[in-house]
Simulated scan of single mutants.
Amino acid sequence: MKHSLPAHPRHIAILRLSALGDVCNLVPTVRALQRQWPDARITWIVGKTEHALLEGLSGVEFVVYDKATGFGGMRQIWRQLRGTRFDVLLHMQQALRASALSLGLECDLRVGYDKARAKDWQHWFTQRQLAPHPRAHVLESFMDFARLLGVEDTSLDWSLPIPDAAYIEAARLSGEAPYLVISPCANPRLRNFRNWSAEGYAAVIAHAWERHGLVSVLSGGGSPQEREMGEQIRRLCPQVEIVDAIGRTSLKGLLALLDRARAVIAPDSGPVHMANALGTPTLGLYATTNPDRAAPYCWRRHVVDRYPDALAHYLHQTPESVNWGTRVRHADAMSLITLDDVVGQLDRLLAETAMNRDDGGIHRPEDGPATQDDREPNA
């Protein structure tokens, strides 16, 4: 039995707890829902860290879940939302923790991914599934929820809130000179293997200074791995000015830093999607994850893409022969990215966006955000 969709939902729940890049990719779906039903309430159940990034997002009520609190935190959310009934719950988190949390929410309809995209048995916890969308980018998978509800205007809008205090924080670190942000490390999870080399980043920093007059600002969290990477990079660049902001910004401060940057370089991680959401020219470094699925959406043609080479070298496969989203979990895969790959793309990116800067330092792709008709293949 196919459950009916609400024609005009009055209260929409979004369940997406993590991660930073994913919640950035989800914001255009929220904006599309708001355009379609400006009077509808939207409640987003989100992780604690992710809320720090999104706080102040217009027209959204946040309910914050701290995964460190476990089942106790779920019960607290159930109590907080007791008596609240949603017309539809958009279950966008493919994890058993999120599915368990969803069971305590009152709603008329639970919508989740189709079986091909669902993980951790998510389809057992939903009543209506998305239409199949093979080889979809993460942002497009989120937008499929809006499409299922009948939203037609899927143009991209983020409008992430950044308070004045965050710009002051960023300016205190970066100074007045034009700068490039390099966020060298992805989330230091087990077998993540998304990081390029300190030697490679050091050479790019020297190139950015000598060729383009750009100071490099290193960003990242305060983990030992990230701090050690920053120290290695600085040791390799004794003659070049580097601002080390690793572990020294709030999330809003990082947004402001990315917003004012001339460009951003990072592996598949939160900062490339944060920069993309702000319209800042973004150069993603990809070998262990598929950029067709997870590149910074508006800057996909500027990524360094060694994913097919990594598949061939370490898994003896091609992008067409593996499951969508397959990762190459090999510690040496990112070494397939060469210095020429990165500086070549950086030079092209800076040249193509040189005339597209406004007085506020916000940048946009030359032809604007992709629309429903002109998105790239496999996106």
Rank of each mutant, 00 (worst) to 15 (best):
E199L: 09
I265A: 04
Q345M: 12
Q36N: 09
V181Y: 00
S183P: 05
W158F: 09
R147M: 01
D367A: 12
A170W: 11
D309C: 14
E106M: 09
K252I: 13
A198Q: 08
M1C: 07
S4E: 06
V46C: 13
P271E: 03
H330N: 15
D373G: 03
E61W: 09
Q80W: 14
R235Y: 01
Q225I: 05
G284K: 10
A294F: 10
P9F: 05
E320M: 12
P369A: 10
A208H: 07
M143A: 14
A370E: 15
R31V: 02
N187V: 03
E176I: 13
E352T: 12
R357D: 07
R35C: 02
Y167P: 14
M74S: 09
G73I: 12
T249L: 06
W196L: 02
S99F: 01
G360S: 11
M1K: 12
E140R: 13
H3N: 12
R172F: 15
V240M: 11
V240I: 15
R306V: 09
L33Q: 05
G230T: 02
H212M: 04
P163D: 00
G83N: 11
I12E: 06
V322L: 11
K2E: 15
L139N: 04
H133M: 12
W158Q: 14
P188T: 00
R16C: 05
A118Y: 12
E61G: 06
P296K: 06
R375Y: 10
T289I: 08
I246A: 08
L89Y: 00
P6D: 05
G150L: 02
A294T: 13
P163H: 09
D144W: 07
G104Y: 06
S159G: 10
E320L: 12
I242E: 05
A203S: 05
V272N: 01
N25Y: 08
A100P: 12
A171N: 14
A261W: 01
S250N: 08
E61P: 02
P238E: 04
A68R: 12
T282H: 00
L101K: 11
E61K: 11
H11D: 08
N290M: 14
R348V: 09
G247F: 07
A261L: 07
R357M: 00
A206D: 11
V23Y: 12
A177R: 15
Y113S: 01
R211T: 09
